[in-house]
Structures are given as structure tokens and as C-alpha cells.
Amino acid sequence: MTAKVLTIASGKGGVGKTTAVANIGVALAARGHKVICVDSDIGLRNLDVVMGLENRIVYDLVDVVEGRCRLRQAMIRDKRVPELYLIPAAQTRDKSAVSPSDMIHLCNELRPECDWVLIDSPAGIERGFHNAIAGADKIIVMTNPEMSAVRDADRVIGLVEAEEKGTPVLVINRLNSAMVKRGEMISVEDVLDLLAIKLLGIVPEDENVLVASNKGVPLALDGKSKAGLAFQNIARRLLGEEVPFLDLESQGLWQRLLGRK
């Protein structure tokens, strides 16, 4: 097996990177792929909580990098799906505990182990972000339909391109189609107009996301909610399927007429 290493980054915090990693990971694993999720947000780890695996952490990313344990020992298996693993971040250290070359080394060690490595990047564009993208084959940039998040995404895309990591793909999270229709939220077209990169997915705003992340049960496990379905579609697109964007996602003319302030 040679895994594809994907990093989810955003620049701005709180746009849903961690939720996306958990859900895309679950969706890929549910389709029979072996997935390893890596939390690179050292000092502010969250992915373990969202995945509901917090109480099973023994070793973490920093332990692996500093040689206190073997790679396999830090991989926590999520028993709800066939082959999903988490390598958690350390909570009692900071970003300087890991360097970009450590991450490249780690990714190279993980590649023969699985089909997909999903790295959850911290917010910001400093050391932690450089660590997160160092070993990646492809970067997914996440944003909300909100001007400040879109500006930050633009900056992140520029930095990714400057590091010669290729052009990232985009996921727009928390889109509220009713608000877009009323002209109170910027539309998908407005976001794409500025960022001009390929769209991988649109995830609608959904209260179930919050409920699920508090419970530690990723939404994509059941796939009944709209957001869960959107994450499943993202996973399918990553696997090369042509999946149309959800119905609520296309509003066409109205966005053009009302979307802009």
C-alpha cells in the first residue's frame, strides 16, 4: 500500500478542519480503506475528542517523533469502522516539539501502512502549519462562507503554492443556503471567484455536527444528516467518483443576483 497524504488547513480557526478530518476519515474507512488520521495541533489537540477516542491515548505524535514508542503503539484504532486509526497530538508540549523534517519522516513511515493519511493542521500560518503541510501530497483548504475566513484561505493557498506543494482543493463548510438566498451570506460562486481553485465539496450548516462532535461520534458514521452526506460525498470524490454537489448546494441565478453585498 502507498498512502496518499492529505492535509486539511484553513488559516483561520474554527472553520471545521478537525470535524472534516474525523468525518472524511470515517467515510473513507467505511468504504473499506485503511485510514490513519494525524492530529498535528500539538498543545491544543481536539481530534481525539471529536472522534471519541480521548480516553484511549497512551502515546502521541511527539512520543513517536522523539522515539519513546513505535509508530504502531501510537496508533489508536477506532473500533466502529474496519480500519481507522488516530495518532493524537501531545497536549503538554507545543509546536516546536516537532519539525517539518520530522513530519516528512513520519509521513514516509506511514505511507506503506495504509491507503490514506489525513493530517489535521492547526490554525495559523506559523510553525504548526508548516509542520502539517511538510509531508503532504495534497492540501485541502477549508473555509466558511465568511469574508475573513475566505481571505485567510487565500493567504494559505498562496503559502502552499510558494512551498511548491501544488494547488490545493477547496471545501466550503457551514453553508446556509437560506441565508445565501436572502443575500445575507456570501455564496459558493463568490468564494470561488476570489480563490479560483478546484472545489472538492460543500458542507451545509447542520446542528447535528455540534451534537456529534460533543458526543464523539462522527456524523458520517450514519450518513442520515445532510452534513454527514456531504462528507461522504467528499470521500467519494477523493476516491475518483464523479459525485454531483448536493441539491441545496446549487442555487444558480439567485446567488449571482443577491449573493454580493
Binding site: R155, L159, L194
Partner: peptide
Amino acid sequence: RTLRSGTLVEFPGHVTVMGDVNPG
């Protein structure tokens, strides 16, 4: 190319951009 947020171009002459100059 498109100049994205955070890019600063300083040049002692003319500048031609074939692409967008984004906010920032």
C-alpha cells in the same frame, strides 16, 4: 499568475500581472 493575500511585490520599474491581484 494571481497574487494572493500576503504577497508583496516591490519593483523599481513597471509591473505587469497576468492574473488577479487579490485583497491582501
